[in-house]
Design a protein around this nucleic acid. Structure first.
Lengths: 202, 202
DNA sequence: GTCTATATATTGATAGAC
DNA sequence: GTCTATCAATATATAGAC
């Protein structure tokens, strides 16, 4: 028992190591986190880490992939919904926010620490990120084509929406007074209001 | 001449060092940047840095302060404008975006690297950040009180707006195809549409 | 004001006992 | 599967010549 709920669960040592790393990468950043700290939080000597993971870089790569998987698998459940584009956007924003909050540590690695990757892992990260953004762009473009959304630059609209969503990483605290559902609802409403047609005659 | 426009200007050595550091802190992050790299970009041996700056930490503190000054001084020119709250919000978002783009390196230090500070500098950073957020909260609360904005949680609204604005750090490139004015206009429109009353009867 | 040389600490990672 | 001991590299920072 380390006193940290993210690490104390009954799981394999390898998983304890990865969870400790994800927690520290989210809260301190990859470069500011040492293998010694990860080992300490996981309850091991630092050399023991290398029995479970080949390197610090490889750990980050695995965590970034895992965070990306959480986001994309959650989003795909929403992407296929047979709903008006406006409601699909609402669902997409809600899903992103709730998925982040539920899987904070690994998703934060994807959102914040991807640039610390090198080599093939770095390229894969940017490809995955672009794919995720691309899905939102298709959604917004679809809404404009259908006349549900006002005509506006699609890329900037998605940067605005994902900026709002991704920034949650920087301020959300479980004891911060905002239930996840409240944040998800309010942010979905912001995204929809920013895009739906209306007030053009003002 | 280093080939980097942010550093080549005709200025004192001290300023060259600070500009090199700011550029690297923005693009690589504080922890991933070494004094050796800063010296190289500034065109000095690494020991020579310490003639101009007492430590790496102190440099970051100075840059974070400078970035914060850019944002707050620009915002204060807007804060006193005698305009409807809706237009003051539009101006505030526009000003934030344009100020970031003009003073990217130091403002990015304020937005992204503040958490790397320690001791008194760390406390001062959080105080300044809270003050900046507080100004936006007053603006939003004022708009709600006057009936210009729909009733909504003020803190979440400001997190949404500043998230959208701060995330520009992560995607803006001078050659990215978006003129600063275009980004500023679109983002101001998003913020306003997210908050103004309307469509409540739908 | 810039340099060479160096002190000291810490890093990620490895070797090998148990 | 975890440990102690250690390696080689790099980090920030200092001392002192010029």
């Amino acid at each position: 028992m380390t006193g940290n709920a993210a690490v104390d669960a009954e799981v394999t040592s390898r998983e304890r190591v990865l969870r400790a790393a994800a927690y520290l990468f989210r809260t301190k950043g990859f470069d500011a986190t040492s293998m010694r700290e990860i080992a300490q939080l996981a309850g091991l000597g630092k050399s023991s880490l290398y029995h479970h993971v080949p390197s610090k870089q490889q750990m980050l790569g695995e965590l970034v992939d895992h965070g990306m998987d959480q986001l994309t698998s959650a989003l795909q459940r929403v992407a296929t919904a047979d709903l008006p584009t406006t409601e699909r956007l609402r669902l997409a924003v809600r899903t992103h926010v709730l998925t982040y909050i539920e899987h904070r540590d690994s998703v934060a690695c994807f959102i914040q620490e991807g640039r610390a990757l090198t080599g093939d892992q770095r390229g894969a990260f940017f490809a995955h990120r672009d794919r995720y953004e691309g899905w939102f762009r298709e959604l917004v473009a679809d809404g404009i084509a259908k006349g549900e959304f006002r005509p506006t630059d699609v890329k900037l609209a998605v940067f605005a929406i994902l900026g709002m969503c991704h920034w949650v990483v920087r301020w959300y605290r479980p004891d911060g007074g905002f239930p996840p559902e409240k944040i998800a609802d309010d942010f979905a409403e912001f995204a929809v209001r920013g895009l739906v047609t209306g007030q053009e005659g003002g």
